[in-house]
Design a protein around this nucleic acid. Structure first.
Length: 522
RNA sequence: GUCCCCUUCGUCUAGUGGUUAGGACUCAGGAUUUUCAUUCCUGCAACAGGGGUUCGACUCCCCUAGGGGACGCCA
């Protein structure tokens, strides 16, 4: 199940040196360096665009350097984690085509491992048991706040000053305790691939908790232990962890482990420049799949959010992305998610698709919405193929297919009112339809060329532009105002259908004449 | 409040001391067209503010402002 190699103990590296130099190199990836990265979501929700972007950068980075991309589920907060969320995250990853190496690691299954290292830290004096209750801590926090000062457990480190006998007494009484890291004096300095050198004074940190009183490790401890044991070489994660990094580094030092290299990614913001959240609408990656976005477009778009190749290129295939990607192009500034641009990009991809590929997507979509069934596809695939050709250049999202193709399967049940008032107001509209009907009826081979000749000829006879004939016709045949070219549509629909729909329009007009009053009403 | 980080058109970005500050999306206009979309052309639109340094700052330094993050027995 777990595919972990246990680490080599605490010896082996030189903590005093690693403090400043291990991640301080200018070269983020040394030639020949073995790259191992991971994406470590916590299953407290679906895979959202921010998480997806982090996953994408890690994946790209791994592929680019021929390394491994691992997946770890950070589910140490049992109360907030759910199995369905894990499934949703995995689905999202698969949809984006982010394949991971090895088995997925679940932190909830590694509790003994964390315990081992926590105990080790206690034994060597780098961590201590804290018997203070949550309420006590909270009270102190409130007190500090009321006095307008910062609360830090550091200030008195009460439980670090317990005598051996006090500790024994507490333990005998089975008093619950958390474990805190004993933070040394000084400061932590590290180099981030994006943000450069960062220094944090330890007076800003605290003896933070590494194992909760319920026995579960905290995030900080678990990440460090797992990243070490999974031999993660580079950590690419959200910017929100920049301030957590010094804590993690302190744990590495306490355990005597080498540091990975860090690369923090700018966050993705909503339209109002606030952190992306529910009220921004779609944030789960799955919603974009439903909305008819192509995963390659999503991948391309998300990669460009906070990264640029350096030139003006914007459209990249998956392989081109892998080739071009580099941590050097990562932006410091957080980026606003612009759905308009995503939509544009999706349209570009949809347009560029092979006709046969697009056809597959169209039929899948129509099947999904029950607009057609398998039988229809097997019987009328030529019809569907032609239809799909006609709509391909004018589609932005797959989910538009339904409303765009209704008239290919059903006679119009109503007519677009606005278009009706505009295009059917000619006094002799009924006569015109009847004449068109009559003339189209005489065509032997109902082809684009023949239809066009008839319609254009008729327009000439009436001494009006072809549009004056085609627009009313479009409404009669499709019921809507915007469609692909009319000659193509009529050819595909066939003579019988076109004549029948024309007849229906005539009947409709006879029953509901378009008068100036109805125009005004509309 | 303390600390860390960030700041080029509305948005995504190029730019690394000397540029008419470039591209893309959006928006507006135009061309093509039977509508819509595509395509093409044109246009609108930015270096947060203030001090330095310099012959010269979008580029370097400082300050201010604004934004984000951390300060949880959440991750």
């Amino acid at each position: 199940m777990l595919n972990l190699r246990r680490g080599n103990s605490t010896e082996g590296s030189n903590p005093s040196l690693s403090a400043f130099f291990i991640c301080g190199g200018i070269v983020f990836v040394e030639p020949g360096e073995k790259v191992r990265v991971r994406f470590a979501p916590s299953p407290t929700g679906y895979l959202h665009v921010g998480g997806a972007r982090t996953a994408i950068f890690n994946w790209l980075f791994a592929k680019k350097y021929g390394g491994n991309f691992l997946l770890r589920i950070e589910d140490t907060d049992a109360a907030r984690s759910g199995e369905d969320m894990v499934a949703a995250i995995l689905d999202g990853m698969s949809w984006l085509g982010l394949d991971w190496d090895d088995d997925v690691v679940f932190q909830s299954k590694r509790l003994e491992v964390y315990d081992e290292f926590v105990n080790q830290l206690i034994d060597c004096g780098r961590a201590y048991k804290c018997y203070c209750t949550k309420d006590e801590i909270e009270a102190n926090r409130q007190l500090a706040k009321s006095e307008n000062r910062d609360y830090r457990y550091n200030h008195d480190r009460r439980c670090n000053h317990l005598t051996q006998s006090e500790i024994q007494t507490y333990d005998k009484a089975e008093m619950p305790y958390a474990v805190r890291l004993l933070l040394p004096e000084g400061k932590t300095k590290f180099v981030d691939a994006v943000y450069g050198e960062i220094t944090v004074e330890h007076s800003q940190l605290d003896d933070f908790i590494i194992r909760r009183s319920d026995g579960y490790p905290t995030y900080h401890l678990a990440v460090v232990v797992d990243d070490h044991e999974m031999q993660i070489s580079h950590i690419l994660r959200g910017d929100d962890h920049l301030s957590n990094t010094p804590k993690h580094i302190q744990i590495y030092h306490a355990l005597g482990w080498d540091l990975p290299k860090y690369c923090h990614l700018p966050l993705i913001l909503g339209k109002d420049k606030q952190r992306l959240s529910k009220r921004h609408g779609a944030t789960a990656i799955g919603e974009y799949e439903k909305a008819g976005y192509l995963s390659v477009a999503m991948l391309n778009f998300l990669t460009l959010l906070g990264w640029s190749s350096g030139d003006d290129r914007e459209l990249f295939s998956r392989d081109e992305l892998v080739d071009t990607f580099s941590e050097k192009g990562i932006q410091k500034k957080s980026a606003v998610f612009d759905e308009k641009k995503l939509e544009w990009m999706n349209g570009q991809y949809l347009n560029a698709l092979e006709q046969s590929e697009f056809y597959q997507l169209v039929t899948a979509q129509l099947l999904n919405t029950n607009a057609i069934d398998e039988l229809f596809i097997s019987k009328d695939s030529a019809y569907l193929r032609r239809m799909s050709e006609l709509i391909q250049p004018r589609i932005k999202r797959l989910s538009e297919i339904g409303e765009m193709t209704g008239y290919f399967f059903k006679d119009p049940e109503s007519y677009d009112q606005k278009a009706l008032n505009k295009h059917w107001k000619a006094a002799d509209q009924i006569t015109r339809f009847e004449q068109i009907q009559q003339r189209l009826g005489t065509i032997a081979l109902f082809s684009i060329e023949e239809i066009e000749a008839v319609i254009r000829g008729y327009a000439e006879e009436l001494q009006v532009g072809a549009g004056k004939i085609l627009q009313p016709l479009r409404l009669a045949v499709t019921g809507i105002a915007a469609t692909p070219g009319m000659f193509e549509i009529m050819e595909l629909l066939g003579k019988d259908t076109v004549l029948r729909r024309l007849q229906a329009a005539i009947s409709y007009l006879k029953k509901n004449p378009v008068s100036s009053s109805t125009i005004n009403a509309a």
